[in-house]
Nucleic acid binder design. Structure first.
Lengths: 142, 142
DNA sequence: GGAGAGTCGTTCACATTTCAACCACACCCT
DNA sequence: AGGGTGTGGTTGAAATGTGAACGACTCTCC
């Protein structure tokens, strides 16, 4: 259980640290940042709402809310989904992409500083496979 | 960065799974459960508010809220702190302890099922030290 | 070709978290 | 003593998260 305790505390502390950094750097929340990242990686810089919410970062309704926020900030736009009349596409705007490019280095820096660079290659490897195993199980269960 | 991605997704997914289990088993939220656990472990089943909030589980004001909820549920009581007139002690009640004892096995089961038991001894060890290192750094920084 | 079941995104009501401001008390220092 | 500073806990407003319910659409299968 020590493992679990450490995991829990660390993930919360790290989450806070990241939130703080992102807020300071660009006024973004962590969920918002994750959304931008995923959109930037998607082909055409766009993605279906449901698909986006499956990233485990946010629930469906939280996503609706966050996309609205990002739309107000001019970083994302909604578009009709061709071929599926109910669907909505979230599309990254130019401004959104630029913002992401501006913020990403600082974010990565924090993650490295507190997590990645503290670990040996073996530890990092072990943690990654551990996380991936668990992730796979959790995803398959629902 | 794959490591980070995996870590992030997994912690969110796991968090949801746990929340779901606790809610079903006892109508508790995860933060509430953590509070009960820490109180149960504390000498005299009691702890200062601020100390409790340093566990990284919740912020000060969130703690005030949660303790109020737990008080309504009869699982915790507030008491004056002898020797410090401003202080408040959160005290675990009999009912709170019984509830915890009833719920804990199920909770532990979930954590084992999804995280602990999926890992080899070495992986578990590596992950634990990794988490502890990071935790130490994060705590020292503030 | 149409009924029923499932999916998509939004909305609602509500629970919770955050941040800043606040009051009361403790501590320090002379 | 007693003023300044710090700490402990609470509060209020605002932001965000959740789950259930909804309306619109698609799909499947007869």
């Amino acid at each position: 259980m020590a493992a679990w305790r450490a995991f829990l505390s660390t993930s919360h502390l790290l989450e806070r640290r990241i939130e703080e950094q992102l807020k300071a750097a660009a006024g973004l929340t962590h969920p918002q940042y994750e959304i931008l990242v995923r959109l930037a990686e998607a082909p055409g810089h766009q993605m279906r709402m449901t698909e986006l919410s499956r990233g485990a970062v946010v629930s469906k309704s939280a996503l609706t809310y966050q996309i609205t926020q990002l739309e107000k900030a001019g970083m994302v736009e909604r578009a009709k989904c061709p071929g599926d009349e109910r669907g909505v596409l979230a599309v990254l705007t130019e401004a959104g992409l630029r913002c992401l490019e501006r913020v990403a280095p600082g974010h990565v820096e924090v993650v490295r500083e507190y997590l990645i660079d503290r670990l040996s290659r073996e530890e990092l490897q072990a943690m990654t496979t551990a996380m991936q195993k668990t992730e796979a199980v959790l995803r398959s269960r629902r």
